[in-house]
Design a protein around this nucleic acid. Sequence first.
DNA 1: AACCCGTGGAG
DNA 2: TCTCCAAGGGT
Length: 347
Amino acid sequence: MVFCNTLLKWYDLNKRELPWRKTRDPYVIWISEIILQQTRVSQGLPYFSKFIESFPSLLDLANAQEEEVLKLWQGLGYYSRARNLHYTAKCIAEKYDGIFPSNYEDILSLKGVGNYTAAAISSFAFDLSLPVVDGNVVRVLSRIFGVETPFESFSGKKKFYDLAAKLLDNKRHSEYNQAIMDFGALCCTPKIPKCESCPFVSMCIAYNTNNINKLPVKLKKIKITNRFLNYLIINHEEQFIFSKINKGIWKGMYQFPYIEVEKKINKNELFEEENWKIFFCDYKYKVIASSKVYLHKLSHQNIYATFWFINVQNLNKKNFKCVSKQELMQLPVPRLIEKFINDYKLI
DNA sequence: AACCCGTGGAG
DNA sequence: TCTCCAAGGGT
């Protein structure tokens, strides 16, 4: 009880003005929560504005094409969020008659909505008494209450959810949930937290045992693989070969055809690659130039990408999807492709 | 359970 | 340059 009173007092003085806090429209709150998954407010804010402007209501989103949604998401990353968002909008339009579900179980069942997001929507839009447990909450609770169990583990999840539920204010749930996340984002930050102005220093176990930098305990060490992609920039009769990606992390977006190789190789080795030969089989082609090597760092991959400018004399355009510069600009592309296009002023 | 998924900013 | 990681979720 002392905890939530202190927290709410801090919030009254320090809270951020954020556009999605001005509404109780579950659609708008849902959009904001999906955008903010693993994403900083400063990065997500402009996307939120664009998104709501383009799709003011759930039915606007449901009636859109997936490509439009991905185009608006371009540059934000984790593109499955955009695909799931669109899928779920259509699902709500059909299954729930366009009315956003108002109970926790139904909200949780939506694709792209997990424990955190379901609790957030339930709390912020419908004032249900559910604690949110996100990265901020885990960090704040682990430090103040000295919880050393990693949140990723099963027992860790139970500990943090139990503790969060116990601390939840029984009147101002929604504000309490906003407060603890703002507190984590502004005061109890991952690096160099502002302990000198923290209202919980006297009771904070991490602070008083000099363990601020050790909490929260995290398990996962992700493994990063290197990939070597050679994109083929084939401009034929004012059009580029440019096709839709049908699987993987960039599914639904577009890119140039590419030849992937196992390791860093030189030009002559590349031209002797089996996949290179298969791609160009009967074509008369000439390699005009190549780009620098782009290093594109993803969460699980380092992509080393080279773009090869190639002229093909006898290209059979029926075998490829070709688009004009104007069409290309309208299509959703991963950041890597966008950077290349900008660098070479293809558009 | 363990591993997968983007991008950019801070330090 | 390098590491960490941010309003997590799906498989």
